[in-house]
Simulated scan of single mutants.
Amino acid sequence: MPAYFERIDASAFRPTSAVEGAWSTEEQHIAPSLGLIAHAIETEHAERRGRDLQLGRISYDILGTIPIERVDLDIRILRPGRTIELVEAVLSHEGRAAVIARAWLMQVADTAALAGSSLPAMPGRHELEPWSAGEIWQGRHVRTVDMHRRQVEPGRAWAWLRPQLPLLEGEEISPTARLLGLVDIANGLTPRMAPAEVAFPNVDLTCHLVAVPTGEWIGFDTTVTVGPAGLGLTDTVLHDDRGADGVVPLGTVQQILTVRPIRG
């Protein structure tokens, strides 16, 4: 089965055509790269100290577009520690940094008796209609993800997503890295504006997690806000099948947008 990336060596990866972007088919959709970065951070951690910490927050700054060509990953430990660590990863193309990520890895503890949240539940997958993002977006990547969606209005929707392809050829991917290879799609789930008329790419993505996802499907409870001076925000609460039953959501994702009307 094809994947989004193939490994070249310990720190280099080759994207396949499945990463073809939604804003431009000559560029990578950033979603798989964000998952690849998370996988590399978790792999380095496991090799160094055996996965005794878990990823609680990861923040990505997206510095530019990436062609569908080889990328390299460099990882360094900014704040080592016994119970928490801060790790930085830089994804680059031909020596130019394209994404800088910082991740907090945190200790595991049994807090099941304390679990709870006042965030609202979302409809289950079978309550939503199948939907193809290809109706409004170009590129192959959005066509490699199964989607069910209910849009309340432009800028407000629930959706359940499942990737059809593995993130990386021949390697086991954690549920968390698999999730992080999906979350950037949130910004395209319920646009307030037609992409042909207004560009609204995100320049960052921050994900806070309170649980490791279970099952194949991830739920997105997404709201898009646009301000009066070129800024926007896509805000998402993430769920898995437990969330649909009213248990604690997985976490949240925020993406800051640069909103640019396209002049003909």
Score class of each variant (00 low, 15 high):
226 V>E: 05
167 L>I: 12
26 E>N: 13
257 L>C: 06
83 T>R: 15
40 A>W: 11
78 L>A: 11
204 D>F: 03
244 A>K: 02
126 H>G: 00
84 I>Q: 15
157 A>L: 04
148 H>C: 07
184 D>E: 03
228 P>C: 02
159 A>V: 08
47 E>R: 15
136 I>A: 11
228 P>N: 07
85 E>I: 03
20 E>A: 13
173 I>W: 12
128 L>V: 08
239 H>D: 05
215 G>M: 02
182 L>K: 10
50 G>Y: 10
117 S>M: 07
101 A>W: 10
161 L>I: 14
202 N>V: 01
227 G>F: 03
59 S>G: 13
133 A>M: 12
92 S>A: 13
153 E>Q: 13
117 S>E: 03
164 Q>E: 13
169 E>P: 03
66 I>Q: 09
28 Q>M: 15
245 D>Y: 02
75 I>F: 13
128 L>P: 05
5 F>N: 06
52 D>V: 09
202 N>H: 01
74 D>C: 13
11 S>I: 13
237 V>Q: 08
155 G>S: 05
65 T>I: 11
173 I>Y: 08
195 P>N: 01
109 A>Y: 02
9 D>N: 14
132 S>H: 05
190 T>C: 15
152 V>W: 01
159 A>Q: 05
239 H>K: 09
125 R>K: 05
247 V>E: 08
245 D>M: 12
250 L>Q: 03
58 I>A: 09
75 I>Q: 09
37 I>W: 11
28 Q>S: 14
101 A>Y: 11
237 V>A: 12
226 V>C: 04
131 W>A: 14
123 P>A: 04
94 E>P: 04
252 T>I: 09
31 A>P: 12
102 R>C: 03
195 P>C: 01
27 E>C: 08
236 T>N: 11
115 A>K: 10
248 V>W: 00
8 I>F: 10
8 I>E: 06
18 A>I: 08
195 P>W: 00
25 T>N: 11
148 H>L: 04
177 A>C: 13
116 G>V: 09
139 G>D: 03
49 R>D: 10
50 G>P: 03
154 P>N: 07
229 A>E: 07
208 H>D: 04
164 Q>I: 01
158 W>Q: 11
35 G>R: 15
142 V>R: 03
235 D>P: 05
23 W>Y: 15
202 N>I: 02
136 I>Q: 02
103 A>G: 01
134 G>I: 00
198 V>Q: 01
1 M>W: 05
50 G>F: 13
64 G>Y: 10
124 G>K: 00
219 G>C: 03
222 T>Q: 01
29 H>F: 10
252 T>D: 02
104 W>G: 04
45 H>F: 14
77 I>C: 13
213 P>K: 02
146 D>H: 07
106 M>A: 14
157 A>E: 06
77 I>Q: 14
41 I>D: 06
212 V>G: 03
208 H>I: 00
246 G>F: 07
221 D>I: 00
122 M>A: 05
129 E>W: 00
238 L>E: 02
149 R>E: 04
61 D>F: 08
19 V>R: 05
89 A>Y: 10
71 V>C: 12
145 V>T: 09
224 V>S: 00
34 L>H: 12
258 T>H: 01
61 D>V: 14
